[in-house]
Design a protein around this nucleic acid. Structure first.
Ligand SMILES: NC(=O)c1ccc[n+]([C@@H]2O[C@H](COP(=O)([O-])OP(=O)(O)OC[C@H]3O[C@@H](n4cnc5c(N)ncnc54)[C@H](O)[C@@H]3O)[C@@H](O)[C@H]2O)c1
Ligand SMILES: NC(=O)c1ccc[n+]([C@@H]2O[C@H](COP(=O)([O-])OP(=O)(O)OC[C@H]3O[C@@H](n4cnc5c(N)ncnc54)[C@H](O)[C@@H]3O)[C@@H](O)[C@H]2O)c1
Lengths: 225, 225
DNA sequence: ATCCTTTTGTGAACCGATGCACAAAGTCAC
DNA sequence: GTGACTTTGTGCATCGGTTCACAAAAGGAT
């Protein structure tokens, strides 16, 4: 029922992977509004990208569109979800239950995408044992045991910068190979471990750079997102 | 005292701009430890990048190194800060004082880089008037007036997705041209307005994709940060 | 003054990503 | 069935960014 050549090619470009969640979000919105099929043009607008880029991105997953018609919304949601690995659900642990860790633990937007907060850890005895968004805060000493017991495969680091590398080393030693880091440090990890970082301070600095340019000379190029 | 050709070229590559804050962070650490000069190799390691890339990045700002020696740490800190616009300080407003907005408002890492939280807004009458990290929560009706009065030039959006576009339109109308968006929506803005987005859910989905690959076939390429 | 060592700054090859533009493939009306 | 119309999938030119590799520059030793 599918063409024989490359039904699902290994090796999707990184830039494409980073956009798939965007398409997925737009598609979910459409599915909710009862839209059955969508053209690359309309979906591209909803996701804020160029339609040729969108088509090329989707072509890496397979030929799921119908010429003259567009893409079946439900079917595409399924294909993208499967490609991203969202058909299973992922046990996530958060380490560091401070300002940020609390906000993350209480956030509903993760669960709705198949990410289940399976554990939260902290080193502060004042915090350990507290109930955060329905979860008991575990002591950091339990890190390895709890990760193993609950099958945690993704760890979110929300500790102070000074503790991040040490915690990172421990979670890696415990077998975790996917880390989302909020601490403003460059983490050193062995090959095979993925680290993604979110640094709000860097984002503000980039905005400041462009803002300064706008204020300064009347020669500038802007926008992006 | 400087070469005549292009002492400070306009048009620094976007990829370079995104890394300058990283170099700055590493340099601050070195300055604190009393390091006076640093080679591109050492700084590159501290920032987690390739040294040729670092040198090319710095060369866009000017020729601030000394062959055979390296870069003067203090001087380079100053040059990068100036380029990024961090020699002035920036008034930032946060809109939406929920889980995330609170964490951001209380975060010290912004102030230390020249970003001053000048105002926080919310629509919920329960929250308006509260004291958050020493700031009085303003009603969203005051948005335009307060932005103008306090010279706010960067706005952080931490409202629910449904409210984000409307708030965005209002801050843009009030003259703001730099926005950091945490809401999971594609914002539409006029030319000349910079939007940067932070989407934690997307980061997790990208990690899940790679995690799935690792678990699946024994043919994979990983790491990055 | 000359040589040797170190390290910068950059030319050039390379690589991945973008976007145009169009043939191929499908739908729909009649 | 035929023809007009729509929209996908992709070849190709282009672009921005990365990395290699080295000549030029600086400093220190003798
Ligand atoms: N709050 C923000 O908006 C924000 C923004 C950008 C970056 N960050 C970064 O995120 C991280 C957390 O920020 P925060 O504001 O929540 O800080 P925080 O100080 O409020 O919380 C840190 C928590 O980590 C715990 N902790 C310390 N050492 C630990 C260890 N070894 N193991 C486990 N837990 C440990 C502390 O007990 C504390 O509860 C920091 O690195 C910060 O730079 C925060
Ligand atoms: N909490 C997280 O960890 C997290 C993670 C990723 C993304 N986000 C996104 O960040 C945003 C905020 O998340 P949150 O968890 O803080 O949500 P929240 O519901 O706790 O807070 C939202 C706040 O915005 C206020 N608000 C609503 N409409 C407003 C308006 N028109 N003007 C001003 N204020 C208004 C609400 O009163 C509330 O205080 C959401 O879009 C969410 O999807 C949050």
């Amino acid at each position: 029922m599918k063409s024989p050549s490359h039904p699902r090619d290994r090796g999707i470009p990184e830039a494409t992977v980073a956009r798939l969640p965007l398409y997925l979000r737009a598609l979910h919105g459409m599915a909710e509004r009862g839209v059955a099929t969508v053209s690359s043009e309309d979906l591209a607008v909803a996701a804020g990208v160029n339609s040729a880029k969108l088509r090329k991105d989707l072509s890496h997953l397979g030929s799921y569109g119908t010429r003259g018609v567009g893409y079946d919304v439900e079917y595409l949601v399924y294909q993208i979800s499967r490609e991203l690995g969202l058909t299973q659900d992922w046990a996530v642990a958060i380490v560091g239950v401070g300002n940020l860790g609390r906000a993350l633990a209480g956030y509903g937007g993760f669960v709705s995408r198949g990410f289940r907060i399976a554990a939260v850890f902290d080193a502060d005895p004042e915090v350990v044992g507290d109930d955060i968004a329905g979860l008991n805060v575990e002591h950091i000493d339990e890190l390895e045991a709890v990760i193993e017991r609950r099958g945690v495969s993704i760890v979110v680091l929300a500790t102070p910068a000074a503790a991040a590398q040490e915690v990172c080393d421990r979670v890696v030693a415990a077998g975790v190979t996917s880390i989302l880091n909020f601490a403003p440090v460059v983490l050193t990890v062995p090959d095979g471990v993925d680290v993604r970082k979110v640094d709000l301070s860097i984002e503000l600095q980039i905005l400041a750079f462009h803002e300064q340019r706008k204020a300064g000379g009347p020669l500038m190029a802007v926008d992006s997102q």
